[in-house]
């Protein structure tokens, strides 16, 4: 009884230490978010007074910035564009990187190693130069100024990542499983689909989540390829239409970022365990 209590006390003390240790990290990570959140609900004059306490409302909170977002810009369309682009990019990444990762990891292709490395090295090509020739490609496909252009372009940076991630992951699947399946009459394809793929779900999911988040981090390609107001994704639409010359619409900018960022953070956190499993499998063994 007494020991159980001391154990519990000990445990509680341990937790307190952990919380104390985590506090600065949470503070660093979350403070800017809190700042964005409160700015999104502040009236403009409240932002430009030096004598006010900045952390709370000195004038009544307002929904005006969100009204601007939804009624004076195409924000609704931007959200839909962002999500559809991300979904397509994730899908394209999936159908290209999964087979590629598998081929490089398992099929003992003579040049596998060098091909894998070259795929990774494409990251060395700076986007600030790449976007010019790519704009030609986009125009040739007749996709200029449609969000479809970004569906074509974003996989250039999600496929290499996905391939590497999955390559490492497939390596951890025991070879015997696959060979047993082949002996049982499955071909290479059958073994891949019926045996390797099902046990690799965490890795595949990781690649998908990653493709999803990476496609929300671009600005330059979106800027260069998609100008019409109703075709932009959020990360392009918001800074391009809510900064007018030398006037920043702080409230709307912050609100817009949070409205897409927070749900993705929840999603991300939800998959984080699988994600961790994913990268562990990817390069740990």
């Amino acid at each position: 009884m007494a020991t159980a209590q001391t154990l519990r006390q000990k445990e509680r003390r341990r937790h307190l230490w952990i919380y104390a240790g985590l506090t600065p990290f949470v503070f660093i990570a979350v403070f800017p978010i809190y700042w964005m959140l409160i700015t999104a609900f502040k009236q403009d004059p409240d932002l430009y007074r030096m004598d006010n306490i900045p952390f709370w409302f000195n004038l009544a909170p307002t929904l005006r910035h969100f009204k601007i977002l939804f009624f004076q810009t195409n924000y609704g369309a931007w959200i839909v564009n962002t999500m559809t682009i991300a979904a397509w990019v994730a899908l394209i990444t999936l159908v290209t990187a999964v087979p590629a990762g598998y081929a490089l990891a398992r099929l003992r292709l003579p040049a596998a190693e060098n091909i894998g490395i070259s795929v990774f090295m494409t990251y060395l090509v700076p986007p600030i130069i790449l976007f010019l020739p790519l704009s030609r490609v986009v125009a040739m496909l007749g996709l200029q100024d449609e969000w479809w252009a970004l569906v074509v372009v974003y996989p250039t940076f999600t496929i290499p990542f996905g391939t590497w991630l999955l390559m490492g992951f497939f390596k951890t699947v025991p070879m015997e499983m696959e060979e047993a399946a082949r002996v049982d009459g499955c071909g290479y394809l059958g073994a891949f689909l019926r045996v390797v793929l099902p046990v690799s779900v965490p890795g595949v999911l990781t690649a998908v989540i990653f493709a999803f988040t990476l496609s929300m981090q671009d600005f330059l390609y979106g800027l260069a390829f998609v100008a019409p107001g109703d075709q932009k994704p959020v990360p392009v639409g918001v800074p391009t239409e809510l900064i007018r010359g030398d006037v920043y619409y702080w409230g709307s900018l912050m609100g817009a970022a949070l409205l897409v960022g927070l749900p993705v953070a929840v999603l991300y956190n939800f998959f984080l365990d699988r994600f961790i499993q994913g990268i562990t499998g990817g390069v740990g063994k």
């Binding site: 990290f25 949470v26 990570a29 979350v30 800017p32 978010i33 700042w35 964005m36 700015t39 988040t213 929300m216 981090q217 600005f219 959020v234 990360p235 392009v236 918001v238 800074p239 900064i243 920043y248 702080w250 900018l253 912050m254 817009a256 970022a257 949070l258 897409v260 960022g261 927070l262 993705v264 953070a265 929840v266 991300y268 956190n269 984080l272």
Partner: peptide, 21 residues
């Protein structure tokens, strides 16, 4: 864990603006 990953999920082009402010 969910709170600390938020910075990573916000679109960079917009969160930089929050820092600018």
């Amino acid at each position: 864990r969910g709170l600390v990953v938020i910075p990573f999920t916000l679109p960079i082009a917009i969160s930089v603006l929050a820092w600018k402010w």
